[in-house]
Design a binder for these strands. Structure first.
Lengths: 115, 115
DNA sequence: TACGGTACTAACTTGTTTGTAAGAATTGCG
DNA sequence: CGCAATTCTTACAAACAAGTTAGTACCGTA
């Protein structure tokens, strides 16, 4: 096993490392939405009706801290904040897409209908 | 959002569906090891020193139930059980590989050294 | 003074995943 | 008998991720 540490956490392999950056329930949906357009906080929220403010905020923050998205604040009232994808985020989206297509294939095999 | 149910669980998208089948800490490492050879329970365990019996057993069972691997029991004492990959598992391994390569790329970007 | 609108923030609770520790089944062998 | 060998099983605990609820800041406008 490769086994290494990053920010005090022990990882067993590169897959785990990648999934810790872009995995979880909400990160891929967020990246997916930002893949070809800039979006505001409220806009993102509208297209993800089940996400809570807490999760949206925290996941956006983590994605930004690790360079997958960019946050732009306009100094106005009420606040206006725009999120956009970065070069690194765009690479991640390719992986998201691969997994997404694979997921759809699996769903077919398992007889699951979406929508 | 697509949104659908599978076994009483609500999924928001195909990515989540895929990751529920082959995600988690141990499933990909297991599939990866079985990708080109049959392995016994104890052998798998030896190459994954940090996995517990409980996790190894449960993850093997889930992978088998969903058709990613095959379990063959030899009626001998002490027990002998062999695990091998299926056609479906082989497809999954391609995804594992994609994520793995992406993970290594990310690790480089983040300045993480493996091993 | 109160309210609307937007993007958060914090405290608390629940749910899920993973880990720990111990034990069980089987039978040949010393 | 007592133990080794191998593959699980169970009960319990810890850790982590996600959800719930409520509240904050700002300033223009009614």
């Amino acid at each position: 096993m490769p086994e290494f540490y990053y920010r005090k956490k022990l990882y067993y392999n590169p897959v785990e490392f990648a999934m810790d950056r872009i995995g979880g329930t909400w990160k891929m949906p967020i990246l997916w939405r930002l893949k070809d357009r800039v979006m505001r906080y409220g806009e993102l929220k509208k297209t993800m009706p089940r996400i809570s403010d807490k999760m949206l905020t925290s996941q956006l923050k983590e994605l930004e801290e690790e360079g997958f998205i960019k946050r732009k604040v306009y100094p106005v009232v009420p606040p206006k904040v725009e999120y956009s994808i970065t070069r690194r985020g765009r690479k991640a989206v390719r992986i998201v897409n691969t997994i997404r297509e694979y997921g759809m294939e699996l769903m077919k095999e398992f007889g699951v209908s979406s929508g």
